[in-house]
Simulated assay, not measured.
Amino acid sequence: MTASKIVNFRDIGGIPVAGGTLRPGIFLRSGQLVDLTPEDVDFLVNKHHLKEVFDFRSKKEIEQQPDTTMPGVKCQNIDILASATNSSASIEDMLLHADNITEGMLNTYEQLVLSESAQKGYHDFLTEALNLNEPLLFHCFAGKDRTGFGAALILKLAGASDDQIYADYLKTNEMRKASNEEIINSLQGKISAEQIKALQVALNVDKSYLERAFATINQHYGSFANYLTEALDLDENFQTKFKQTFVIPK
């Protein structure tokens, strides 16, 4: 059987949250959906009944490595970091910030909160997810930063605990292990030792990155509730509607 090309895939539903359980089979996350096998397509379309893909990558990333088209599945590009400065979300950006990759990653998480494109992007994603109310998949290149913060927003909206949010976020390090090794091996001898070392850091997630995003929310908006209304421009009743739609009551 051909090895799956879907990396860092999981359903973030099915967990207990305040008031009930986050519906399984709705919120799927992964890395980019490039060169999928027929088995991969069958897995997403027929097993998971996928209806829409939200691609958080840049236009350039998509042109270089387009997602596989799947029958009956709509695909929407939301370039989360289009207006961000000094982000480290793509391979190219990671290499550009190899001299101080940790600071580059922390800055990226600030941009995920503060940049205009991220605010509009997550507004559009969350609004359309609520309206769709069907199985969707969201991803970026590695499915770890733009996607990781998106997953954290969904879980927090649903009433998940901080421990649950960080547990899902950190699963990426185990689920990307083989893929990261392939990337590093493919670049050996093509880039500097310093860049290899930086990539080994950047291709993983660290709890401090997501902590920086939540600290930035509190610093600039005072609370998650204020962030939803002031930064994401969501209706003040959005979280209530979200829970009513996606949380199965106890």
Rank of each mutant, 00 (worst) to 15 (best):
L203H: 07
I15W: 02
E63I: 05
P135C: 09
S115M: 09
K51N: 15
V53Q: 10
N8C: 05
D206M: 07
E134T: 05
E116L: 14
G222C: 09
I217W: 01
E134R: 08
L130W: 04
L114G: 11
G104E: 07
E211F: 07
I154S: 12
V7L: 06
A151E: 14
D124P: 04
D99F: 13
G104S: 06
E181P: 03
E39G: 03
Y221G: 03
G189R: 14
D40Q: 04
H49D: 13
F9S: 02
A178C: 04
T37W: 02
S192K: 04
Q76D: 09
A89H: 08
P135E: 05
G13A: 09
K74V: 14
D67Q: 09
I191L: 11
I80Y: 00
H97A: 14
N100W: 04
L81N: 01
T147L: 10
L153M: 11
K243S: 03
L36I: 07
I78A: 02
R10C: 04
E116I: 05
S192D: 06
Q119W: 04
Q111F: 01
T108W: 13
Y109Q: 05
E63R: 08
Q188E: 14
T216S: 08
A18W: 00
R29G: 00
Y221K: 06
I15K: 01
N173V: 07
K144S: 00
E182M: 11
K243R: 15
S115A: 09
K60W: 07
